[in-house]
Amino acid sequence: MKIAFSTSGEDLGAPLDTRFGRAPKFLVYDLDTDTFMVIDNLKTMDSAQGAGIQSAQTVARSGAKAVVTGNCGPKAFRVLSAAGIRIFNTGAPTVQEALELYRAGGLTEADAANVEGHWS
């Protein structure tokens, strides 16, 4: 199974980005092979509107079945849910720490958006 992490960096030591919709990148980690790829999200980050929707589509296309991020707004939540993707919010500082928390079952699945759109 693949998990998408919002991040500003290129590797597991990079910071977990607190924003989902306007995250600069997504690190998609494959739990089955312990490998990852990084998807650039800069075009979406700079879009005037609908960033959360576009990011959710990007993540859905990556094949990820879960998202680990700082915060997720209502439109992104709706699209991710429709795509059958589970959402986990965490304050973990890095992708590595968020991944370890996920593996240890230390993350709770979100059942709603935890912020309004345009919160940051």
């Binding site: 609908g50 929707i53 589509q57 859905a60 699209v79």
Partner: peptide, 23 residues
């Protein structure tokens, strides 16, 4: 519909489209 809409007001990926009227 989803690939046409520049404003992401309608989104679809092999499922029923989601509509965001406010967009």
């Amino acid at each position: 519909c989803g690939s046409f809409c520049e404003y992401h007001a309608i989104v679809s990926f092999g499922t029923l489209p989601l509509v965001f009227p406010e967009m």
